[in-house]
Design a protein around this nucleic acid. Structure first.
Lengths: 117, 117
DNA sequence: TTCATATTTCCAAATATATGGAAATATAAG
DNA sequence: CTTATATTTCCATATATTTGGAAATATGAA
C-alpha cells in the first residue's frame, strides 16, 4: 500500500529532468546500483546538485542508499515503483475495470503483462 | 511510444495535489468522463484554478477534452497512462529483466497483473 | 596524526509553478 | 437581441523548486 502523499512525492520526484534521468540510469543499473560519483560523472551534474536530487528521490522512497567505504551507493526500490503504478491503476471506472480497457475489441488479444520495472 | 519530455510532463502533471485528485476522480468516472463544473464541485476548487490544472493534465496528454453543449467534458486517456507506465518499466537492469524482480522467490507465485488504469 | 577522496549541508540567487478575482469567450434559451 | 450558464484567459501576487559555490562531515590511506 501507499498513501496519497507518498504517490504525490513520487511523481514530484520523477517530474524533473535530472532526477528522471537519475532514476532511469539506476533502473538500468539494477540491484547493484551506482555510487554518487558514478552518477555525477554519467550525468555531468555538480556534486551539490546531484546530492539534492538524490535526496528527493530517496525522500520519495524510490531509491535506497547504502554506504560502501567512502562511496554511497544508490539503487532503485522496485517494490515502491510497483506500488506507485498500482496506485494509478486501482479503483478505475467506479469499480468496473472492464470499462477502463482502451477499446472493447482490444481486450481479447491483450498482450501478457510483464512485472513493472 | 512516448518521449522523455512526454513522460516528464506526465509526472509533473500528476505531481500536484489538486491535479492528482482530478486525475483519480476521472479514472473513477471512466470513459464517460466529467464536466469541468462537476469536477469543480466535487473538489471544491475555484473555476480559474480548475481550468489551469485541467490544462496541465491535458498538455501532458493524460486527459482528453470534448465539448457537449455548454459543458466541456474531461476523461482520462488510458492509452497514455499505459505508455507512461511502460516508460518506467522498460530497459531495466541493463537488459536483464529477471534481475529487476523484487526477490527471486517471489517470482513463482507472482499475482497476475491487470491492465493499468 | 595528516592528507586525500567522496559526498553532503548550508545558503542565497535564479527560475518556475500555483492561486483566484475580474474580464473575456462560447453556447444556448427566451 | 438579451440574458443566463459554463468555462476560459489574463495577470499580479504568493509560494515552491532548482542551482552551485563554499564550507562541513565521513571514511580510509600514509
Amino acid at each position: 500500500m501507499i498513501t496519497d502523499q507518498d504517490a504525490l512525492r513520487s511523481f514530484a520526484a520523477l517530474a524533473q529532468e535530472t532526477r528522471l534521468a537519475l532514476y532511469r540510469r539506476l533502473v538500468e543499473a539494477g540491484p547493484a546500483g551506482l555510487s554518487a560519483g558514478a552518477l555525477a560523472e554519467a550525468l555531468d551534474v555538480p556534486a551539490p546538485t546531484l546530492s539534492f536530487h538524490l535526496a528527493q528521490l530517496r525522500g520519495a522512497g524510490l531509491i535506497t542508499q547504502q554506504r560502501s567505504s567512502r562511496s554511497l551507493i544508490y539503487a532503485v526500490d522496485v517494490a515502491r515503483m510497483n506500488d506507485v503504478i498500482a496506485f494509478l491503476s486501482d479503483r478505475c471506472c467506479g469499480g468496473q475495470p472492464e470499462l477502463c480497457l482502451p477499446t472493447p475489441k482490444s481486450a481479447p488479444h491483450a498482450r501478457p503483462r510483464r512485472k513493472a520495472v
